[in-house]
Design a binder for these strands. Structure first.
Lengths: 205, 205
DNA sequence: GTCTATATGGTGATAGAC
DNA sequence: GTCTATCACCATATAGAC
């Protein structure tokens, strides 16, 4: 269904654990953390719920693992895709398209990672996720800063600008569905072009 | 804590019902719908949980009521605040500021309304909320359309533009906290100005 | 590694006294 | 309008056989 699946193999290389993570991600996304029972997960995998505890200490650990893996994949993706491009506008667009690709490939998975990490109770894990998210945003800020330095963008509030774009992308994960008219990547690209260009008409010569 | 509270009185005029709604809103926002038990709500109000059922048929009705009241208040607020202004840019900004005011005044309350309405199972209520949200977005689209017609904005994708601004506002409800450096209204205003102006420098004369 | 069986506790909701 | 008492259910998690 998407190439985020293989990354799950990083979680120990165990195939059954991978299955549990994958099915859990779908269920968490569809029904929420509390709305998903261990019984639901077991049924989706095709085992009994007690068997899950052979691989994960508890339900929270499943969720935590999903969030970290998803954020790791997201960060890799956006970094890779913008690298090599010259113009800052193109780099921002590539960044956004990569984010959108991650949403499209792993809608349920992403959803949990980006929006549901509040469920993480463990303080250490929470801090780690926060750090990952900060690093992710900082990557976009760096691109925008480069654009200003190159004279391609005006002197603007970098933090605000990065936040505006990421807000559009994160919110998109809430409403976008694969069966819609436009692909996630197209919408992301349109957002970026609209925001970079602004609403104002060309000045009259 | 905010002037959304009086609107609760529309819910029958009963003071105890109002208390239940207010405390529930806070708890839903803090811990989620599933993460909030009838016991939690009762304790916050200072009654026993069985008493809640004298005012509301079930837990879902409490949530549904909160969502509808919040969206009603939000729609009134954004409509009122932009009326009378002339320039489309000012009207968009007033719209966004009003939305931000609603977030600031009733952060927990708003949160539930804007982001948690997925919890609504009842199809009729769900449709109603969807209609209210559509009406809300359409109000912003109307302002942008006016701006294009007046030549103040260029010919742009109105739906996308409205969605971009609302994405920023909705996402802000996720991360903004009253003790931060900037007020919600200031951030909303900055978002709008940034997006309307765009990232590009003035053309060299 | 997977199972059956079960411990333990919290949940939404109801009955009925006052 | 608020209470006590309780029901029926489902949750997470564990024990221990195979």
């Amino acid at each position: 269904m998407g190439n985020w699946e293989p990354t799950f193999d990083a979680a120990g290389g165990n195939s059954r654990a991978t299955e549990i993570l994958r099915e859990s991600a779908k269920l968490f996304a569809a029904n929420g953390y509390d709305g998903t029972s261990m019984q639901d997960i077991a049924a989706a995998v095709g085992i009994k719920k007690a068997s899950i505890y052979h691989f994960f200490a508890d339900k929270a650990e499943i969720h935590r693992t999903i969030v970290v893996l998803s954020l790791t994949r997201l960060t890799e993706l956006v970094q890779d895709r913008q690298r090599g491009l010259e113009r800052a506008a193109d780099r921002v667009e590539a960044f956004a398209r990569a984010h959108a690709q991650h949403i499209a490939e792993s809608a349920p998975f992403y959803f949990t990672a980006a929006l549901g990490y509040n469920e993480i109770i463990d303080p250490a894990a929470k801090a780690k996720v926060q750090r990952m998210r900060d690093g992710y945003e900082e990557a976009l800020r760096g691109i925008i800063r480069d654009g200003i330095q190159a004279g391609e963008f005006r002197e603007l509030d970098v933090k605000l600008a990065a936040r505006a774009i990421i807000s559009c992308l994160n919110w998109m994960a809430r409403w976008w569905r694969p069966d819609g008219a436009d692909s996630a990547e197209k919408i992301a690209s349109d957002y970026v072009k609209l925001i970079i260009r602004g609403f104002l008409p060309d000045p009259i010569e």
